[in-house]
Simulated assay, not measured.
Amino acid sequence: MNEEEVRRFSEENNNIVVDRTFKTENSLPIPKPCPKFIHAFHNYPEILDEIAKVGFEKPSPIQAQAWPVLLSGEDLIGIAQTGTGKTLAFLLPAMVHIDGQPGRREDRGGPAVLIMAPTRELALQIDKEIKKYQYKGITSVCLYGGGNRREQVKVVTEGVDIVIATGTTE
């Protein structure tokens, strides 16, 4: 996308604002959004297959802007309304990250991704979303107070790639 296309994309998507929190004179430019799934995941055909299975037609604004940032290895704070695709915005790059780590997953000694949620309801919702996508055998578990602690410990001990956790029992 050229700068005019980026500006138009922002305007057409609720005037999405993208900026660096700790900007310096040496800061790299912010990666441009990817308005199509293929733009973000052309190197990951299995992810494109999973997206096709769920039937999405195009990335949401938060996804279009988050994926190029996260796939480039940068951190991101994304703020968007409920139901706009934030979970998938960080989930798919997390799966790429897990798969890209050196060595066999079984030999890594623990999960590669920790997702902290403020409530049990949101933690379970994130876990449900993760389980919709089957990418290279990546597994997840949701840990929360009030659940079966023995079963949760067993799953983590046996090996899991993503842990979704909350400290609340509400």
Results as ranks from 00 to 15, higher is better:
Lys154Arg: 15
Gly110Asn: 10
Glu46Tyr: 12
Ile47Phe: 03
Thr157Tyr: 06
Ser72Gly: 09
Asp49Met: 07
Arg20Tyr: 14
Ile130Leu: 05
Lys154Ser: 14
Asn2His: 08
Leu88Trp: 01
Gln152Met: 14
Arg108Ala: 09
Ile38Trp: 12
Leu70Ala: 12
Thr169Leu: 13
Gly147Trp: 05
Tyr135Val: 09
Arg105Asp: 06
Gln101Val: 12
Pro68Gln: 10
Ile126Asp: 04
Tyr44Phe: 15
Glu151Pro: 01
Glu46Trp: 08
Thr157Pro: 00
Gln134Cys: 07
Val17His: 08
Val6Ala: 09
Gly137Asp: 08
Val113His: 12
Lys58Pro: 01
Ile51Leu: 13
Pro33Cys: 11
Thr84Tyr: 05
Ile51Tyr: 01
Asn13Gln: 09
Ile98Asp: 01
Phe37Tyr: 04
Val69Trp: 01
Lys136Arg: 15
Pro68Val: 07
Met1Ile: 09
Ile138His: 05
Gly55Trp: 00
Ile51Lys: 03
Lys23Ser: 12
Met95Gln: 14
Glu158His: 10
Asp107Glu: 14
Ile164Phe: 03
Ala89Ser: 15
Gln134Glu: 15
Gly109Thr: 12
Phe90Lys: 07
Pro45Lys: 14
Gly145Asp: 09
Phe9Cys: 11
Leu91Ile: 02
Gly110Arg: 10
Leu92Asn: 02
Ala40Gln: 01
Asn15Tyr: 11
Glu57Asp: 13
Asn15Cys: 07
Lys128Asp: 15
Pro29Tyr: 05
Ala80Thr: 14
Thr157Met: 07
Lys131Phe: 00
Leu124Lys: 07
Ile79Lys: 11
Pro45Val: 09
Leu124Pro: 00
Ile126Val: 15
Asp127Thr: 09
Asn14Thr: 13
Glu106Met: 13
Pro29Met: 10
Ile164Leu: 09
Val17Gly: 00
Val18Asn: 05
Pro93Ile: 01
Gly137Asn: 11
Val160Ile: 14
Gln125Leu: 08
Ala112Pro: 07
Ile130Glu: 02
Pro68Thr: 12
Leu70Asp: 08
Glu170Thr: 10
Gly145Cys: 05
Ile62Tyr: 02
Tyr133Ser: 07
Thr82His: 04
Tyr44Asn: 13
Gln152Tyr: 01
Asp99Ser: 15
Gly83Met: 11
